[in-house]
Computed example of a mutant assay.
Amino acid sequence: MEIQVINSQSSDINTIFDFYDLAVAHQKKVFNKHWQGFSRELVETEIAENRQYKILVNGKVACVFAVTFSDKLIWGDRDQDAVYIHRIVTHPDFRGFSFVKEIIKWAKEYATQNGIKYIRMDTWADNEKLLSYYTSCGFEYVGVVTMEESEGLPKHYEGISLSLFEIVV
């Protein structure tokens, strides 16, 4: 089995949004919160800036995720020297492949090559299943933040509490 982490292309945008729809359907089944949509412009910008990725398994898109290098509204004063991972979505046919571990492996290599000190991510503070999963993948839980300002972030960030995770590279 060949696994590749590569940049998404403009031609992948419909696939990315199909994956987001699958994620929302899954979130509605397993949790009391779900994503509330993303702007096409956001994803187009991420693709243009090489910040939207896909994981291929034997050439087939199995997972998508995005990164950013600044997350001030979420991380506040700690927002520095990090690659922030967002919107990991695994296609249902590939659940159980431990793609978060693949993303961590990719992020560690990326961080090392680019002199970045942290790999960070967030999730809903009350999602116990994801909290346990992320720590089992090697992330350290570093606290909770309640969103007071969310302008510029997707709608589901309004007024929520997030658990924060990081790996020191």
Rank of each mutant, 00 (worst) to 15 (best):
residue 36 Q to G: 13
residue 1 M to Q: 11
residue 62 A to N: 04
residue 74 I to N: 03
residue 13 I to Y: 15
residue 16 I to N: 06
residue 159 G to F: 09
residue 110 Y to C: 14
residue 164 L to C: 10
residue 10 S to K: 14
residue 168 V to F: 15
residue 55 I to Q: 01
residue 29 K to E: 10
residue 82 A to H: 04
residue 105 K to H: 13
residue 73 L to F: 14
residue 18 D to P: 10
residue 50 N to H: 05
residue 121 M to I: 12
residue 74 I to Y: 08
residue 20 Y to N: 10
residue 150 S to V: 03
residue 119 I to L: 08
residue 161 S to Y: 11
residue 140 E to D: 11
residue 149 E to V: 07
residue 156 H to G: 07
residue 81 D to Y: 06
residue 120 R to I: 04
residue 56 L to P: 07
residue 31 F to P: 02
residue 30 V to T: 10
residue 120 R to F: 04
residue 46 E to P: 00
residue 26 H to L: 07
residue 152 G to I: 07
residue 7 N to W: 04
residue 92 P to I: 06
residue 137 C to M: 10
residue 76 G to S: 06
residue 132 S to R: 12
residue 168 V to G: 06
residue 25 A to Q: 10
residue 44 E to Q: 05
residue 76 G to F: 01
residue 6 I to V: 14
residue 63 C to Y: 04
residue 123 T to K: 12
residue 45 T to R: 07
residue 162 L to R: 03
residue 35 W to F: 06
residue 103 I to D: 06
residue 155 K to E: 14
residue 105 K to R: 15
residue 156 H to V: 06
residue 105 K to L: 14
residue 23 A to C: 13
residue 167 I to Q: 13
residue 62 A to H: 00
residue 34 H to M: 00
residue 116 I to F: 13
residue 48 A to R: 04
residue 44 E to T: 00
residue 34 H to G: 02
residue 129 K to N: 11
residue 91 H to W: 01
residue 133 Y to V: 00
residue 84 Y to V: 02
residue 91 H to E: 05
residue 32 N to R: 14
residue 169 V to M: 11
residue 129 K to W: 03
residue 136 S to M: 07
residue 85 I to M: 03
residue 95 R to G: 03
residue 120 R to G: 09
residue 124 W to M: 10
residue 1 M to K: 12
residue 65 F to D: 00
residue 27 Q to N: 10
residue 159 G to E: 02
residue 123 T to F: 09
residue 109 E to A: 14
residue 93 D to E: 15
residue 106 W to I: 05
residue 59 G to S: 05
residue 47 I to N: 03
residue 96 G to K: 12
residue 119 I to K: 11
